[in-house]
Design a protein around this nucleic acid. Structure first.
Length: 481
RNA sequence: CGGAGCGUGGCCUAGUGGCUAAGGCGCGUGCUUUGGGAGCACGAGAUCGUGGGUUCAAAUCCCACCGCUCCGACCA
């Protein structure tokens, strides 16, 4: 029973007690997002959208540096387009939202709201690119897509989500594969350097690959409950789509060539991973590079010292111009209330300014990730803040890496495999014969699936964890989000 | 699409046939406050999810529908 204001305010479910509930509480209370009137859809609120804008800025720079251009393709796709690639339509048909009526009339051809844009984009590529001289064509778009999910989860799985989708076509398979690997490495960079999240890159099994792809690569991140989140995917499409679309290009040797294609995407799901992997019982913990507000200054004063303290706080703010800084000037809220508010929002560094600080000519700094407190002279403040933020970015990553490694095991016994999946879960490296029957059985019995075959996995000789037949590789298994 | 649960001011809940639907949080105004979730006073805010039925009388009982959340299968 809630007795007073304080207890009510503290009602974020403990992270260790119920991760899912904690996650929802934090997203809603930190004002990252809210449920929308339409089922399965969410509103991304300004503070949450600011995170997305930071991801966009970081990733967009890398995309452009690679020579990929941004463009925009329409939301609506003629139903017939989707039907051209057999596997593609089979994969997406169950999830599509379809417009059957517009302008008060029934449409002659139904319009699919894009679940992904391969089909519309390649129809246009076909029109634009007829000669080998026009290859490669490398286009990215930042947009929304709709996949009608039966079961939704803020940021991690909603019926509509935001992402970028890059689509390139090349004259040779080697060139296309190079782009596929470049995209995968770029996503890794986003997670490692911007979001301070460790993860493992690899290739998907046949059953988990993208509908219509020859091969799918992904970046897998371990969440605190030992489940894996797919953080981004890069698909080698081979010539599947160019053939399905009858798109040929005339080559140097005057022969017709089906271009080699790839597509790659990173979505707002990344924000879900960021929230879930970081964060503690007090709320969000944002790594400095992604934090919309890096430093929050909290003035603490007696009525008679108000002007003096606010003046000093202003001076401190000026000395921190190189960072995203805000001063919490809100009246009628006590210092303690503000501490909690900004901790919930995950601001990396708090600066306390009161009479003590004025007297000492210093500021009190408190780190969000470990609550370590220190006093720093005004003259050294800016360089010290810079240093602390840098250290935090690194340490948050290292903590997640350590967590992931501690929950990654080499397993050769199916009993042990089952046991771990029942308890703490995690990444399990186990031999698998690559037959789908074994994969299905393992999923049925343990809820774990092959997440990927790690990029640097060596060929070994071993026995399939399930059937005991010869296996060449240890695959990375986990229960997936 | 299967299973479970829930719909009462913005949020959380009480009320389970009978008077003007109650309280906490939040919100507004004023005063006092500010070193870990402050206090007082006044105030605004409700077609009790929708439709039908039973009854002298329904938030409360019955029927139908709708919506949402959680759990499973599908998925970035």
């Amino acid at each position: 029973m809630i007795k007073n204001k304080t207890e009510q305010a503290k009602q974020i479910t403990k992270k260790s007690k119920d991760l899912r509930k904690w996650y929802q509480d934090v997203i809603l209370k930190a004002e990252l997002a809210d449920y929308a009137p339409v089922k399965g859809c969410m509103v991304i609120r300004p503070y949450g959208y600011a995170l997305w804008e930071k991801i966009q800025a970081f990733l967009d720079t890398l995309i452009k540096a690679h020579g990929v251009q941004n463009a925009y393709f329409p939301l609506f796709i003629p139903e017939s387009f989707l039907n051209r690639e057999k596997e593609h339509v089979a994969g997406f048909a169950p999830q599509t939202a379809i417009v059957t009526e517009a302008g008060g009339e029934k449409l002659k051809e139904k319009l699919v709201i894009r679940p992904t844009s391969e089909t519309v984009m390649y129809e246009m590529y076909k029109k634009w690119v007829r000669s080998w001289r026009d290859l490669p064509i490398m286009i990215n778009q930042w947009n929304n897509v709709v996949r009608w999910e039966k079961r939704t989860y803020l940021f991690l799985r909603t019926s509509e989500f935001l992402w970028q989708e890059g689509h390139c076509a090349h004259a040779t398979y080697e060139e296309s594969l190079e782009t596929v690997m470049w995209a995968l490495q770029t996503y890794k960079k986003v997670y490692n350097e911007l979001l301070s999240l460790y993860g493992i890159a690899g290739v998907k099994s046949e059953s988990e690959k993208f509908a219509g792809a020859a091969k799918t690569f992904s970046f897998e991140i371990l969440m605190p409950d030992g489940r894996a989140l797919q953080g981004g995917t890069s698909h080698d499409l081979g010539q599947n789509f160019s053939r399905a679309f009858h798109w040929t290009v005339q080559n140097k040797d005057r022969r017709n060539l089906y271009p080699w294609q790839n597509s790659w995407g990173l979505s707002t799901r990344s924000i879900g991973g960021l929230v879930m992997a970081g964060g503690d019982d007090n709320g969000l913990v944002l790594p400095p590079q992604i934090a919309p507000i890096q430093v929050i200054i909290i003035p603490i004063f007696k009525t008679e010292s108000q002007d003096k303290v606010l003046g000093f706080a202003e001076k401190v703010k000026e000395s921190l111009q190189n960072f995203h800084v805000e001063v919490d000037l809100r009246e009628g809220e006590t210092a303690g209330f503000k501490f909690n508010k900004w901790e919930l929002k995950g601001v990396p560094l708090r600066v306390e300014i009161g009479e003590q600080e004025i007297k000492a000519g210093a500021a009190t700094l408190v780190r969000r990730d470990n609550f370590v407190k220190e006093k720093v002279n005004l003259a050294e403040l800016s360089s010290r803040v810079h240093k602390i933020l840098e250290i935090m970015q690194k340490e948050i990553f290292e903590r997640h890496q350590k967590f992931t490694e501690e929950h990654t095991h080499l397993i050769d016994s199916y009993l042990e495999f089952q046991d771990i999946m029942k308890k703490e879960r995690g990444f399990l490296r186990a031999f698998w014969c690559e037959k789908s029957e074994c994969e299905d059985k393992i999923k049925e019995e343990t809820r774990a699936t092959a997440r990927c075959l790690e990029l640097d996995a060596k060929e070994e000789t071993g026995k399939c964890i399930y059937c005991g037949k010869d296996a060449k590789h240890r695959w990375l298994f986990a229960q997936a989000y």
